[in-house]
C-alpha cells in the first residue's frame, strides 16, 4: 500500500521533472517558431477577411468571406489549384523515388562515393535564381538540351514555351535541384541501419530486391517520412522559377498557387486575396501531410 503511494509520488515528481526539462529544451525554438511563424500566419488568416484597394495606406475594411467568395467564383483560381495538384502529384514521387535510388546506390561502398554524393548535391547549393537562369537558357527551344536531343534523333521540344510542357520543364528543374538534397537525408538514414539486419537477410537467402523491401524500407521509415513531408512542402511553396521564367504562363498553365500568392501580394500589392489563397494552400498542405503521417508514421514516438 505505502509502496504504491511512494511509487505514485515518485512518478509525479519524475513527471514534473520531465516536464520542466522539456520546457527548458523546447523554449527557445518554441518561442521563435510562435513569434516568427505562427503569429504572422494567424494574422495572414485574419487579412483574408479584409479588403482594400491595392497598396492603399487606408485601413482595410472587414468583409467576412467576400474575398473567398470572389476567389471561388474565379476560373483562374481553380485552374491554379488544379495545376498545383497536378505538378505535385508528379514531382514528389519522381523526386523521392530517384533520391532513394541514388541514396541506395551511393551507400554501396563504391569508390569515391563521397565525391559523387557531393556532385549530385551541388545543384541545391546554387541560388535558386541562378539555377533558374541556367535552366531557362538550357531549355530554350534552340538551346543546348534540344541540341542534345537532336543528336539522339529526338525532335526539339518547346519546354517552357508550351502550355503542354511547362509543368514538365518545371519538374526537370525542381528535380535537378531537389534530388541531391533529399538524397543526403536518405543516405543518413540508410547509414543508420545496422549491418546485422542485412547479414540476417543474406543468411535467409533473400535477394537484393527482397532485402530492400523487407529490411531497408521498413528501417528507413522515419527519415523517409521526413523526406516525404519536407519535399512535398518544398514543392508546394516553390515559386521563384515561375516568377523568373514563365510568369505563370503559357496560358496560365504554370500559375501555381504559391506563385500566384507571391505575385498577388508582392507585385499587385493585394495582401487580402493573397492571404485567402494562402489559407487554401495551407489547408491543402495540411490535408496531404496528415495523410503522409498516417501512412508512414505508425508507431513513432510511442513509449
Amino acid at each position: 500500500m505505502s509502496t504504491t503511494m511512494q511509487r505514485a509520488q515518485r512518478h509525479t515528481s519524475v513527471a514534473r521533472r520531465n516536464t520542466l526539462a522539456a520546457i527548458a529544451f523546447l523554449a527557445p525554438t518554441a518561442i521563435l517558431i510562435i513569434v516568427l511563424r505562427i503569429v504572422p500566419a494567424i494574422s495572414a488568416v485574419r487579412d483574408s477577411t479584409h479588403s482594400g484597394l491595392p497598396g492603399s495606406l487606408a485601413e482595410p475594411e472587414f468583409v467576412g468571406f467576400d474575398v473567398f467568395a470572389r476567389l471561388f467564383a474565379s476560373d483562374s483560381f481553380w485552374q491554379s489549384v488544379r495545376q498545383t495538384l497536378f505538378f505535385n502529384v508528379l514531382v514528389n514521387p519522381i523526386q523521392i523515388f530517384l533520391a532513394l535510388v541514388l541514396a541506395v546506390l551511393l551507400t554501396r561502398n563504391l569508390p569515391a562515393s563521397g565525391l559523387w554524393r557531393t556532385l549530385i548535391f551541388l545543384p541545391s547549393a546554387v541560388p535558386l535564381a541562378g539555377s533558374t537562369i541556367v535552366w531557362g537558357i538550357a531549355l530554350r527551344p534552340d538551346g543546348p538540351v534540344n541540341g542534345m536531343l537532336e543528336l539522339l534523333d529526338i525532335p526539339r521540344q518547346p519546354w517552357f514555351t508550351s502550355p503542354d510542357q511547362v509543368i514538365l520543364a518545371l519538374i526537370v528543374l525542381a528535380s535537378w535541384i531537389g534530388i541531391g538534397y533529399w538524397m543526403m537525408f536518405l543516405i543518413a538514414g540508410l547509414n543508420d541501419i545496422p549491418t546485422v539486419y542485412y547479414e540476417a537477410a543474406r543468411i535467409d537467402g533473400a535477394g537484393a530486391l527482397r532485402t530492400f523491401f523487407s529490411v531497408t524500407l521498413p528501417m528507413l521509415r522515419r527519415p523517409l517520412l521526413f523526406v516525404l513531408v519536407a519535399d512535398t512542402v518544398a514543392n508546394f511553396v516553390l515559386f521563384a522559377p515561375i516568377q523568373i521564367l514563365t510568369n505563370g504562363g503559357p496560358e496560365k498553365q504554370s500559375n501555381l498557387l504559391m506563385y500566384d500568392i507571391f505575385h498577388t501580394s508582392y507585385e499587385l500589392s493585394d495582401p487580402y486575396t493573397a492571404s485567402a489563397e494562402l489559407v487554401v494552400l495551407l489547408l491543402i498542405m495540411i490535408a496531404i501531410v496528415v495523410v503522409q503521417f498516417r501512412l508512414l508514421g505508425s508507431s513513432d514516438g510511442e513509449e
Partner: peptide, 13 residues
C-alpha cells in the same frame, strides 16, 4: 505546432 510552422511559406508572411 512545429509541423504547422514549416508548412507556412515564409515569403507569404
Amino acid at each position: 505546432i512545429v509541423v504547422l510552422s514549416f508548412l507556412v511559406p515564409f515569403e507569404a508572411i
